[in-house]
Design a protein around this nucleic acid. Structure first.
Lengths: 204, 204, 204, 204
DNA sequence: TATGAATGAGTCTTCATTCAT
DNA sequence: CATGAATGAAGACTCATTCAT
């Protein structure tokens, strides 16, 4: 019973994932999910309260990992990073996301480009907001450690940088055709660019 | 009567603009546009062939200005810009967009965030592609002028930078609450950051 | 004025003929006729009261010729035909229709297959009814002239034979691919078949 | 519930049959079918995928019987018929159709006169084509059995004869007012006429 | 005469969700 | 746990025709 229930949940989620990826949240149809999963439409509602809940369930693993890796204050050695190794600040974020991207490429596409209309439609914003807070905190800590730096970076700039980060992830995820070395070159450029930019801003 | 016609077109477009902004292209309803404009639904179809045509009509002024200011090769002193004044490369783009943003804030929101499902749904892509081409051309010219620089920037990086630009515009447009001085500070930071980044990459 | 009016009428009718042939009466659209003719939709209503009236106007020449040649009692030497030359009864009808078919092939298609929904939608019936009456009269005259023959043919049979005739015309008109000699062979067979059939029935 | 479902299907089909007969396929309205059947419009789509599917469901029994009785090659002793009993060739067809006509009078009207616009709109053609093939085969067999006959009948003539047959059925079905004896007389005439015709053509 | 403007009922089909069994 | 049945609002778009100017 319980076992069966889990199987069915899984079946539903697989079909849903597929349908969501094909059509996006809004255009995906519950009927289609039912058809593909072989589960009766009404039975699906015994497992999930709504289309939106299914959507969230599909993205839950990804969201948890994002939360844990990229947004959880505890996870961040970021903030302990030394200014002279600022490069590694970005490197750390990169490494974290590289894992996520590899494991959740499709889900990321879903979350970033196809969530419109769902309760996760504002993920970009919420992520950016949280990430901005982390960035601000980072600024404060750096200032405490190295009083000489300029920490008067506008919140909006940090906000944009967080969003940029998301944009980068989105583009990597969208371009299936990119080879590993292309990505590596890009990331090197990205880090070099960013590091130089930050140094300039912080007048290090 | 001719006057009348223009008035009605205008009325429809106003109501449509409003509805599109509220719901986005896909979720906007012709019925609602008719209701809000006070024009009979069927009469609307005497002025526009389809929902999509209305949408394009709403965005036409913006699109024309974008095309002219930001994408027209003739408009660009960009490419003649000296490397030591690279700052002004970005400054120029900024100035152009500042005007556009002021005049078409709402339309930009529409175009960047709510065009999904319409024939302008791929604006981000088309803009980025065109802009990337311009960027590549810029690299080539710079290389010709200053053979010492590193012009081996990956196309994907330039692509991302074009997209970033769009992201920036989008965010500015989305945050109605930003004051003029906040924006100014941000732009200063943005230019400083970018200039430093580019210099690093190009090993100037 | 009057001259112009006639020109416009003609223009409308040409466009209408075209549209009706393409779509059939029901699916033809007044808007399309207006578009194709270059005449304002509302102006069309200055020349014709309704779509149906246009349709009838398009078919008027054909209908008049049909009326005159195939249904007008005065036109029939049919009835004076001698029984021994009965062949020529059909021959006569054939000749008449051959002319009509050549001149009004398209209109015949229209009338026979695409008039559904118009006031001429029942042409098959009305034609058949009139033609049946003529057939009955022919029977009576023959009986008067040759009392020996069997004239007790059921009205329904004659009705069917009239309809058959229409079917034949319709098929010839529909099959553009038929060559002249194919049609001739067919007509020969048709007449041979019919003549033998009638002789049998009338016990001549 | 299973019973329920069948009942509802039946209810829908009855209402649909009625509406189709009144208006023809094209002009019949789903809304009207819903109204008449008392079934919610959207619920109808739980039973049938489209208007066309309903139409086909209404005509399915008829079509199956037609296929089986009149077009199935196995069903035909037609082809084994002796030339001297050619009368019975037609007689056999007649008997088959008499049964069909009695049982499916309304459906035949629907199929022959009101199917325009549906996927069965070409029934006349498809039937005629199949029937023509059968006729051609019959000619060949006769020729093999009685080399003396003329089998050089044009395909188009046989085509027309097949169509004639359909026309006859259509007219019988259309004329509700015909009494049994009227029909019988007609059929006798029809057979006599046809038999004489064929004999003449085949020079038997 | 000519036209732009207007109308309102109409088309088929899809949707996510609920509920009694 | 599972399902068949049901719902009502909504989707974009087309139609032939009328009317004031």
């Amino acid at each position: 019973m319980q076992v069966q229930k889990i199987n069915i949940r899984r079946t539903i989620l697989q079909a849903a994932r597929c349908e969501f990826l094909k059509k996006g949240f809004k255009e995906a149809s519950m009927r289609a999910i039912a058809r593909q999963s072989g589960i009766t439409l009404s039975n699906i509602y015994n497992y999930f309260r709504s289309k939106d809940e299914i959507f969230r369930a599909v993205l839950k693993p990804l969201l948890e990992e994002v939360e844990q890796k990229a947004l959880n204050p505890n996870s961040g050695d970021y903030l302990t990073t030394d200014v002279f190794t600022m490069k590694s600040y970005q490197q750390k974020m990169l490494d974290d996301f590289t894992v996520i991207i590899k494991r959740y490429r499709s889900e990321l596409k879903l979350l970033l480009f196809q969530a419109n209309g769902s309760s996760l439609g504002n993920f970009r914003d919420t992520f950016t907001d949280k990430h901005t807070l982390k960035g601000m905190e980072y600024m404060r800590r750096m200032k405490a450690k190295y009083p000489g730096i300029n920490s008067e970076i506008s919140e909006f700039f940090i906000h944009i940088m967080s969003l940029w980060w998301l944009t980068v992830v989105g583009e990597i995820v969208s371009h299936d055709e990119l080879t590993g070395s292309q990505i590596e070159q890009f990331l090197a450029e990205y880090i070099a660019f960013g590091t130089a930019g930050w140094k300039e801003l912080m007048k290090v």
